[in-house]
Computed example of a mutant assay.
Amino acid sequence: MDADSPAAPDFGPGAVVEGDVLLHLGSPTREQRALAAGTALAPLASRTVLTVSGPDRLSWLDSITSQALTMLSPGESAELLVLDPQGHVEHAAGIVDDGEIAWLVVDRSRAEALRAWLTRMRFRLRVEIVDATPTHRVVGGTRAAVADLAADAVWHDPWPGIGVGGWGYAPADPHPGVEYDWAEAIVPVAEAERLAAAAVAGDQALAGELAADALRVAAWRPRAEREADGRTLPHEVDWLRTAVHLEKGCYRGQETVAKVHNLGHPPRRLVALQLDGSDAVLPAPGADVALAGEDGDVVGTVTSVARHHDEGPIALAIIKRTTPVDAPLTVATDDGVVAAAQETIVPPDAGRTASVPRLPRLSRRR
């Protein structure tokens, strides 16, 4: 745990905590089922909150991010990306505005970098950015499960719906995330401590972050901390669904977003992997993904790994666009390679949606 991390609450005997992150309470599989059913809540120490206040907050965030936010209503949830000038994902945030404050839910590992960048971009606008980590915590669960918490705001994850101005690439019908019911409540520290005390007393079921992440991976839901490696384009992980408005005004990286979507193809694509579950070994994020065979070429990298209560060992990986969709793959582990069957999330022909008219060829006069 780094010096700036909050102290971990006491979650009782059996809790496995890494730093201040509750990984599980003895049975990640059972916790997944309870979390999905809405009978458990997940304290999410790996997530934190930035607040943006001031009368210019929504128009300002609209001008510097991928999402259209000027008309965001109080209580309405959305998702935004901060891109670099070449269109690569630098940051992602869930946003909910209460009429006075825009609450940004972000991966804690990237929160300080995002806060610093937003602060540099204020210029003379009437906005104030505050890191709410000392005063607030994030608790995840179904919409119904978090509704009873004493929350200052609740972000309802729009995934996998296709928002206004968005675009979905995944060909699966129905999308495996169609039943992904997820919300993140922003609660004061006192409410988070009450929740932990209720769990110790046996009055509240909790789930660890391993359970929450397994539900995310099964829903093909990208996360900045995992799927954004510095080169990731939103198109490569199907993030145009929820986090990009293709018809809004100019913002940093917008030219690349439009060009790839309308005229090109993203160079890489996200796939879901069903891993051989005959062994207990799971690959680590960052593991090589290769074509099956003795001389199989490395075609990508694992980004997220989980052991799902129904599907078994699963992963998300970013691979080369040109990798055949039916190619058997392998994933490297410390104990050798494991077989992996891929399922298409972003197809190789994603993009190139514009109908570019052919110019008539002029005949040469004789």
Rank of each mutant, 00 (worst) to 15 (best):
V289H: 11
E225D: 15
E193Y: 01
P234E: 13
L282I: 05
A272K: 03
E255P: 03
V237G: 00
D238S: 08
G202I: 07
R223G: 09
R194N: 09
E191R: 08
G286S: 14
A243C: 03
A205I: 01
A287P: 11
L273A: 13
G230E: 09
E227L: 11
E209Q: 08
L291C: 10
A224Y: 00
E209W: 01
A228C: 14
R269K: 10
L240A: 00
C250D: 10
E294G: 08
T301I: 06
D276C: 05
A196H: 03
Q274S: 14
V289R: 07
G286E: 15
V305S: 13
A197P: 05
P188I: 14
T242M: 14
A185S: 02
W220Q: 06
V289E: 12
G264M: 15
R194K: 11
W239A: 15
C250M: 02
A218M: 08
A199N: 10
V302P: 12
D276G: 04
V189K: 02
A243V: 00
V271D: 15
E193G: 01
A214L: 11
V299T: 09
T232H: 10
A212G: 03
K248W: 03
L273K: 04
L282G: 10
V281Y: 10
V302R: 11
L246D: 02
A207F: 05
W239Y: 05
V244W: 02
V257P: 02
R216N: 06
A284W: 03
A207G: 01
A214V: 04
L291N: 01
P222D: 13
P266F: 08
A192Q: 01
A292K: 07
L275T: 05
W239G: 00
A228S: 14
V237T: 11
G249R: 02
D203G: 08
I186C: 06
L233T: 03
P188N: 08
S278I: 03
V271F: 12
R268K: 12
E209Y: 00
A290H: 07
A272M: 03
V200M: 04
Q204Y: 01
D279H: 13
L291M: 13
P222T: 04
V260L: 12
H308Q: 04
Q274C: 02
P267C: 05
P222R: 09
D229V: 03
R252W: 00
A218C: 11
V257L: 10
